[in-house]
């Protein structure tokens, strides 16, 4: 299958999935709609990790940008009285973009473990700042009001998760996933493969590997921030522990490995599986949840290095 066809197929898949989710809204029980929303939010963070993984990089600190997105939205809501979800999303993306641009100058020269650990350090610094700063809500964090869209406020009786918010998240995520798929097939996406496979040759092709890494880093940060905004809008609350602490970043890496980097749909599928299993595990076996994660991660590493997505490829009988 040529790459161009794969891009078109993915586009079609995204369109179908979007339409299906929107059409299903009236049938979805509240918990299911919530799970879909949260999975799309988390999936965006993982989509950012997918970009980095295509570049041969893993960040153990995406919680940093997830937190920045969530906090940007919460702070804009709390202190500026902004309720429009579009404006809040832009605030999250822009803040994360600016921070990633600055930090990018430090991380772009690092690879492998050092890249992973530097990001871990950044996220822990933010965690420390958030947890110790009273105006930022300390360890308790913030609550966020029910968002509006372009002047339309949802029915106050309808609760937090309305069709407005659900539809917004679904459509926004679909557009972003489509865009990422396209960019991965563009020269900058291919440059990423070059960084992963052999940076020296890439440099001798006149491409700045560091520049390419910097761009990917910013893109991944923006995706994580958007995921943070969505999550906060859905949950209505943000704390340092649930966003910036390293265990949250570890969770995102787990989902990225579980899904694999074969397709932009993989992060969302894997995140949904993750959310569903967590819901049940925390209910029936709360003390075995991390064990389940750990064992799954080991099994994926040993037997399914391409993640869940490669399973689909295998079933179709193709070389994964």
């Amino acid at each position: 299958m040529t790459l161009l066809r794969r891009v078109r197929l993915t586009t079609a898949g995204i369109a179908v999935a979007t339409a299906a989710l929107l059409a299903l809204w009236p049938l979805l029980p509240a918990w299911a709609a919530h799970t879909v929303g949260v999975s799309l939010g988390g999936g965006l963070v993982v989509l950012g990790l997918l970009i980095l993984i295509r570049f041969g990089l893993v960040s153990f600190g995406q919680g940093l940008f997830f937190a920045i997105g969530g906090y940007a939205a919460a702070l804009a809501n709390q202190f500026l009285g902004i309720t429009d979800m579009l404006v809040l999303s832009v605030a999250g993306i822009a803040s994360a973009g600016a921070v990633a641009w600055a930090l990018g100058y430090i991380v772009r020269g690092h690879r492998g473990i050092f890249f992973a650990m530097l990001n871990l350090a950044f996220s822990m610094i933010l965690f420390g700042i958030l947890a110790k700063t009273v105006v930022l809500g300390s360890t308790d964090g913030f609550s966020v009001g029910v968002p509006t869209l372009l002047g339309f406020a949802p029915d106050p009786e309808a609760g937090r998760l309305t069709f407005m918010l659900f539809g917004y998240i679904v459509v926004f995520t679909a557009v972003v996933a489509w865009w990422v798929d396209r960019i991965l097939a563009s020269p900058i996406g291919y440059a990423g493969q070059g960084v992963r496979e052999n940076e020296l040759r890439l440099r001798y092709l006149g491409v700045s590997a560091r520049g390419a890494v910097h761009i990917a880093y910013i893109a991944a940060a923006k995706l994580a921030a958007l995921g943070g905004v969505f999550t906060v809008l859905l949950i209505g609350h943000v704390t340092p522990e649930d966003t910036a602490y390293w265990t949250k970043s570890g969770e995102f890496v787990f989902v990225a490995i579980l899904g694999g980097s074969g397709n932009v749909a993989a992060p969302f599928i894997a995140q949904t599986v993750f959310e569903l299993v967590r819901t049940f595990a925390l209910q029936y076996a709360p003390d075995a949840w991390q064990m389940l994660l750990g064992i799954t991660l080991l099994l994926v590493i040993l037997f399914l290095p391409g993640g869940l997505w490669s399973l689909a490829d295998r079933l179709r009988g193709r070389d994964a």
């Binding site: 075995a288 064990m291 991660l297």
Partner: peptide, 26 residues
């Protein structure tokens, strides 16, 4: 996992870490 990518090895030990967290709780 010897011989695989450094990062994959980190992830494998992370998996062990997750398992042991719950083992200790148990």
């Amino acid at each position: 996992v010897y011989g695989r990518d450094e990062i994959v090895i980190v992830l494998a030990t992370y998996a062990v870490f997750l398992v042991l967290e719950d083992v200790m709780k148990l």
